[in-house]
Simulated assay, not measured.
Amino acid sequence: MENNYLSYYLLLSALLFSIGLAIVIVKRNIIVVLMGIELMLNAVNLNLVAFSKNDPNLQGQMFALFVMVVAVCEAVVALAITLKAFEHFKTVNLDRINELKK
């Protein structure tokens, strides 16, 4: 990757992160919010790999792999919590899940 293309990757990453953040802020469905968080993590991965390609001394691929492993663990735990919340509240709407004890 040449240095000329680094700005395009950073722009794409910023766009993906902004879309993910907008999804997290605006949407009220738990599954859609989790998808927004995953989109933000993928934007960070794109940044890490782009910077790693630009400067070979950085270990961006290793950080990106670590972020992917953390994202998978986060998704598993979040989906388990979502299933338990759905079992208890009978909804995945975040506005209706607003109390800790029912």
Score class of each variant (00 low, 15 high):
Asn3Asp: 07
Asn4Arg: 10
Tyr5Asp: 11
Tyr5Glu: 01
Tyr5Trp: 13
Ser7His: 09
Tyr8Asp: 02
Tyr9Met: 03
Leu10Ala: 02
Leu11Asn: 02
Leu11Met: 06
Ser13Cys: 09
Ser13Leu: 10
Ser13Glu: 08
Ala14Trp: 05
Leu15Cys: 11
Leu16His: 01
Phe17Trp: 01
Phe17Ile: 13
Ile19His: 04
Leu21Gly: 12
Leu21His: 00
Val24Pro: 00
Ile25Trp: 04
Ile25Gly: 06
Val26Thr: 11
Val26Tyr: 07
Val26Asn: 09
Arg28Val: 04
Ile30Ala: 13
Ile31Ala: 13
Ile31Asp: 07
Val32Cys: 00
Val32Met: 09
Val33His: 02
Met35Gln: 06
Ile37Cys: 10
Ile37Asp: 05
Glu38Pro: 00
Leu39Asn: 05
Leu39Val: 06
Leu39Ser: 05
Leu39Met: 13
Met40Lys: 03
Asn47Gly: 08
Val49His: 03
Val49Gly: 05
Val49Arg: 10
Phe51Pro: 03
Lys53Ser: 15
Asp55Glu: 14
Asp55His: 08
Pro56His: 08
Pro56Trp: 04
Gly60Phe: 02
Gln61Glu: 10
Phe66Lys: 09
Val67Ala: 12
Met68His: 04
Val69Leu: 15
Val72Lys: 08
Val72Met: 10
Glu74Met: 15
Ala75Tyr: 11
Ala75Trp: 13
Val76Gly: 05
Val77Trp: 12
Leu79Trp: 06
Ala80Ile: 05
Thr82Ile: 12
Leu83Glu: 03
Lys84Thr: 11
Lys84Asn: 12
Glu87Tyr: 13
His88Cys: 01
Phe89Met: 04
Thr91Val: 02
Leu94Cys: 04
Arg96His: 12
Asn98Cys: 05
Leu100Glu: 06
Leu100Asn: 02
Lys101Asn: 09
